[in-house]
Structures are given as C-alpha cells and as structure tokens.
Design a protein around this nucleic acid. Structure first.
Lengths: 240, 240
DNA sequence: CACATTGGGTCAACCCTGTTGACGTAAGGC
DNA sequence: GCCTTACGTCAACAGGGTTGACCCAATGTG
C-alpha cells in the first residue's frame, strides 16, 4: 500500500517551478480549480498543472484522490457553519441553518456530492446537531419529538442540498441537458396520455430552478404547526 | 455527432457469442452488474464483456454512457410505479408514491445511488410526474402552485430515497461503522458544550433508523394545510 | 563545515476509461 | 436473387488514476 504520506512533514523542496507545496495549498488550489473551470476540472493531472508541479507529487500529501476529496470536504463543513449563532426565533434559525448548509454545498458541489452521504462525526457536525435540537427543545417539543423531528428536518436539508450539489457537479453537457429537459421534452407531450402535465405546461420551465426553499418552508410550516409552545420563545429555558 | 442510435430497429444480428442484443437486455445486464459489483463496475467495456459483445456495440443502442444511466434510472422508476393507480385520497396517494419510490431505490441501492439525481426525461418519469401533478390539481391547487409544490414534494422524496440508497450502497463495514459511531460518539459528550444533545441523549439511538416517513408526513401535513379544498385524508368524498 | 540520511519532486510506465471512424458481414425488403 | 444498410467488430486516440524507480537537495548530526 501507499504509505507515501508521512505524518510529520519536515523537509520542503520547491517544485521545478519554484512553488512550495503544502496540504493547505493543494486543497485551496483544488477548490479554486473547481470554482473556476467547473467540477470536471478536478483531476490529479490538472491539479498538478495548476500547482506547477508533477501530478504525482500530490501522492506525497494524499493517499489517493478520495483522501484529497475528504480533506476538501472537511473545509467545506467548517466554512459553512462558521460564525453561525442561533437566534431567538427557532424557525428562522433552523431556516438559516438549512440555507447555510446548502450554500456550503453549492460553493463546492463536486466535493459535496461525493461526501454528502457520509457521517463525519466531527465537531462541526456535532455542534450543528446540538444547536438544531436545542432550537426544537426551546420550541417546546419533548425530548423524543425534538430528536425525531430534528432528524427529519436535517436529513431533508442534507438530502436536498446533496441533490442540488450533485446537479451542479454534473458535467456541463449533462447539466444543461437536464435543465433543458423541462423546456423541451415536457413541452411536447400527448395531451390525452398526460393531461395534468399538459394543464401545467406553462409552469414547468420554472421547475428547473429547484425547490430547496419551498421544501424547507413546507417543513418548517409543519413543525410550527406541531409545536406545543405558540410563540418563538426567548430561549433561556435550561434543560433539567 | 453520433446518430448511431436508430429510432426504428428492424434488423437484429447475433453477436459473436450468439447473444441477441436489445435495449432491454442491456439495461437489465447493467443493473445486474451494478448490483453485484458496485456502481464502479459499470463501464462500457465491462458491460460488453458481461453481455458477450464488443463494448462499442452498445453505442448502437445508447447515445453515450449517460444515456444508458438515464435508461437505468427510468427502469427503476418504472418498476417502482408499476401497477400504481392513484386513489381518491390525494394525500394517501402521494404517500404511496413516496413509499414506492423509496422501495424502488432500495431494491437497487447501488444503481439508485448513481442515477438518483438525474432527470431521465423518459416515459416512466413523465408518467409519474403527470400522476403527481394530477393529484395536486385534484386537491384544488392552482396550476403554478401544483407544479411548484409537486416539485418540492418529489425532490424531497427522491433526495431522501437517494440518501437511504446511498447508505445501503456503502460497504458493510463502513455502513455498520457509521451506524455504531452514531451511538458511541453521541453518547459520550461534554454536557456543558452540548447541553441539548445531552438532554436528548437517550432518544438518539432511535435516530439511526432513518426519517423518511416522518419527513414525508410532515410535508404532506403542510400540503394538506395549504390545500384550498378542505377534504383531506380521512374523508371518503369523491373529487368532482 | 562535512557528511549521511531521507523526504519528496520528477519521470516513465501501466492499465483503466469513454468515444469515434472505418470496415465488413449478414439480415430484410423487394 | 440482389441491394441496401443495420449493426457487430476492430483499431486507435485522448484522458484518467496510480505505482516504482530515480535522484537531488534539505536537514539533523558531528
């Protein structure tokens, strides 16, 4: 196996073009590459070219490409929730959490698409779960309900965000083809076979834009309707 | 451009090994391949080998690999929705659609994990969309609302199902590790740093079972609350 | 200051992938 | 029977990840 990655890194050699490699620089350059030239631009060879080093030099820093992707994912999670402070309005706070997660994913779609379905168990995730459940407790839900409903909420948010990220992570041709599908294919259907689609034909092009916020709002409406306490509380209640 | 795929297929030549190719056989073999050896086992060359034909023969049936993936996705949808007839209770019908989709994904977890986020723009998908929007129209929603809300509903269902499928598609070790880790890590936390998690500590193990139905129920509650026509789930009244 | 050690950048090579153009054969309509 | 052409086959290309070997220079040691 490749134990090309050492734990303690002491010696640094500049590459042929004079750049001093580091794990941080590589992750940063990878994110820039994705941001500028699309998700499909991330490959070992292209990353090497962008860094000004031989592609295989990266294997001195990461076991394989998956290792690199996970390192990128680490940073995404941290960036998304950085500086978030839950407010007194639990609905609004949950909503902001949802939007932050999605924004973090969409900022780096390919890495997010690859890592979205994994349980990180890191501090940022644990912190987020604690915050979210705390918000539902402050809303008056009992413990079991708070845990269960938070799971339903965050799973939906994460799944949705992953879907959006996966779409952004598609190669441009496929992405545009999927986008066009709502305009083209769904516009020219047999009215007898597909009456409902024919009826809403004019509304379909808008569907390509996604439904994240609508879904979050629906969920929050349902949660608010189920909440025992009617007002968004001042949040100071201590857990016994 | 590759117009290698004809619309009307008349002539059939057996391959060198005697197999008679067809779009149906190819999709079926691809599903088997993915189910047995994982999503990464699906390549043109391997599929050709499994079928007993030259790999490039597949380009006579599918535009490119993406086209094949979309065909696989549509087959999964078609199988899941086979025999489904929407009833008079639109909430219950949407609920059954959701459960069917999820069951279809879980029947082919690895294929679903690969194809879940795509717009197949094929028959089975179009049929399902027509059915779903028709249900919301029958509930009294206006056209734009019906289209928008159906998208939010089905996106949530598909995303959730994809998450469940992705989890099932994980290697057993990783899957069980994730499952266990949830209990272990979240049971031994600093009460001061994570008060909410500590409060609901005993409820957490149940969270590992997933939240699909809870999320669907929340969504349907919100939809029912927004519906102009008041007759929802329990009533047996027929829609005009 | 000199030396031995070794981290790590580089190169060549391997095997994988999707895809295309050319080729020829056999299947079907007439 | 012929003629057309659908379609299975083959060779080739560009690009991917990954590895083993090479060797220079940065570093700890004396």
């Amino acid at each position: 196996m490749s134990s090309r990655v050492p734990q303690d890194r002491r010696r640094r050699r500049p590459t042929r073009s004079g750049v001093l490699l580091s794990e941080d620089l590589i992750v940063q350059t990878a994110l820039r590459l994705i941001g500028e030239h699309g998700p499909e631009a991330l490959s070992v060879r292209r990353l090497g070219a962008a860094l000004g080093c031989d592609p295989t030099a990266l294997y001195r820093y990461f076991h394989d490409t998956d290792d690199l992707v996970l390192a990128i994912a680490d940073r995404i999670i941290g960036d998304a929730m950085a500086g978030f402070v839950p407010g007194e309005d639990w609905v609004a706070s949950l909503r902001e959490m949802a939007l932050r997660v999605r924004a973090g994913y969409l900022a780096h779609p390919r890495a997010a698409a690859m890592a979205a379905h994994r349980v990180t168990r890191r501090r940022s995730e644990i912190q987020a779960v604690d915050t979210g459940i705390g918000l539902l407790l402050s809303a008056g839900f009992e413990r079991a309900a708070a845990a269960r409903l938070y799971l339903a909420f965050i799973d939906t948010v994460l799944s949705h965000a992953a879907t959006d990220a996966a779409f952004q992570a598609l190669p441009r041709q496929q992405r545009e083809a999927d986008h066009r599908a709502w305009r083209d294919v769904y516009q020219d259907l047999d009215p007898v076979a597909y009456p409902a689609l024919t009826a809403v034909r004019r509304e379909l092009p808008g569907m390509a834009d996604g439904s994240f916020e609508e879904a979050v709002d629906l969920l929050l409406e349902a949660l608010a309707a189920r909440a025992p306490a009617r007002r968004a509380s001042t949040g100071g209640s201590s857990p016994g």
